[in-house]
Design a protein around this nucleic acid. Structure first.
Lengths: 136, 136
DNA sequence: CAGTATCCTCATTGATACTG
DNA sequence: CAGTATCAATGAGGATACTG
């Protein structure tokens, strides 16, 4: 597990370099695992959506953050943006093959949490109770 | 976190409520998918670590953020903290069964990104090139 | 060693207003 | 409808100092 200070870019891209500050994966990971990134990916796993549809579906997201999130995901090659030159404007967002692939992973994570929420919340309750007992 | 809204807790826990602002999953998701949460979980998938070991392994993390991240993950029931009453202090962090379960999902996501990084970066390069062409 | 406490900064985010 | 622009506020995060 020893590494030298002078690692090449190719070397950085190899598996296990995730822990390095310079690893490009860190940026991608941030886009994908961001608060709105996760929700947008999961939403788009359900099919193509228009901008306003996404805005309504993803509770609490602002126009600005939705636009920014979509731009990141599009630039990373996960989201496909199709603009129809009509009045009023009509834009559709969908997942690319790459996006569906990673969407599967993100969805698995989100689903796991939703499914195990009862367990987690009961653990939290126990932990909080112990804290109260210690303070008493 | 007090309830007493119009939506019952049982209702909130149902699948698909992830898009709701009030869904408790949102908080868990934030802890797990946070910048340092992801890296700590992946690191602990490799086995038990001490605080300073984690600090060295996870590049760029500050003491404060590492401590905070570990506290969140411990409270959510993903991380187990064992403190040995010796001088100097000795504390070991490991994953609970619940933590290993979700760690698997997070690791899958991180691994996918590392494996597909070349594809993603080439897509990015193409996208950036198109932007340049449009501006010209 | 393994933290906590404090202060401080700057990036992320939200609200609002405006545009093609 | 689908954004962009601008500004303000929040809070994530870092640096430092201190403690059990």
């Amino acid at each position: 597990m020893s590494e030298s200070k002078t690692v090449s870019l190719a070397e950085q891209m190899r598996r296990g370099e995730l822990f390095s500050t310079q690893c490009p994966s860190r940026e991608i990971l941030k886009h994908v695992t961001s608060q709105w990134g996760v929700l947008v990916l999961v939403a788009l796993m359900g099919g193509t959506h228009r901008f306003s549809e996404l805005r309504r579906k993803v509770g609490g997201v602002s126009e600005k953050m939705l636009a920014q999130t979509l731009q990141y995901l599009e630039r990373d090659g996960f989201v496909c943006r199709v603009s129809f030159p009509v009045v009023p404007p009509h834009v559709e967002y969908s997942l690319t093959p790459l996006g569906r692939d990673i969407g599967l992973k993100v969805e698995a994570l989100a689903d796991w949490i939703e499914s195990n929420l009862p367990s987690i919340m009961s653990v939290q309750a126990t932990a909080d109770q112990e804290v109260v007992e210690q303070q008493a």
